[in-house]
Design a protein around this nucleic acid. Structure first.
Length: 109
DNA sequence: AGCGTGACGAACT
DNA sequence: TAGTTCGCCACGC
């Protein structure tokens, strides 16, 4: 079994719509933490790989980042391509456009 | 309880 | 623009 923190992360990944991508920063902020490291670490420990779209998570840099799964970042790129997300030169095509953000109940905009 | 590491981020040089 | 460094929180030993 995993810790509560990890479950928070994996649950957040499931909120990512298909054909979209999010950033570790967004998740970290969504969880209320500032350590994107802790998030990435939890994502990497994601045992529900096919159930949790960990491949839809990318750094704020717009790059693929890393991938612990058997295949490496290359496999991650193919997974994104299967979602309709194209990757060029190891970076997300239209990253800022496909970027998905979590709602925080903001009303001021 | 303390030290080192990690699927990152932002600032500095 | 590119490379390097510190900080962050949680996990494992």
């Amino acid at each position: 079994m995993a810790t509560e923190f990890q479950k928070r992360v994996w649950d957040a990944l499931r909120l990512i719509p298909k054909g979209r991508v999010t950033t570790y920063k967004a998740i970290a902020d969504h969880l209320g933490t500032r350590a994107v490291r802790a998030v990435g670490s939890a994502v990497g420990k994601n045992p529900y790989a096919p159930e949790v779209p960990c491949h839809r998570v990318v750094p704020s840099d717009g790059t693929l980042g890393n991938y612990s799964a058997p295949g490496g970042p290359k496999r991650k790129m193919e997974l994104l391509a299967a979602e309709g997300i194209k990757v060029e030169n190891g970076k997300i095509a239209g990253f800022e456009t496909l970027l998905f953000e979590y709602e925080r109940g903001r009303e001021d905009g």
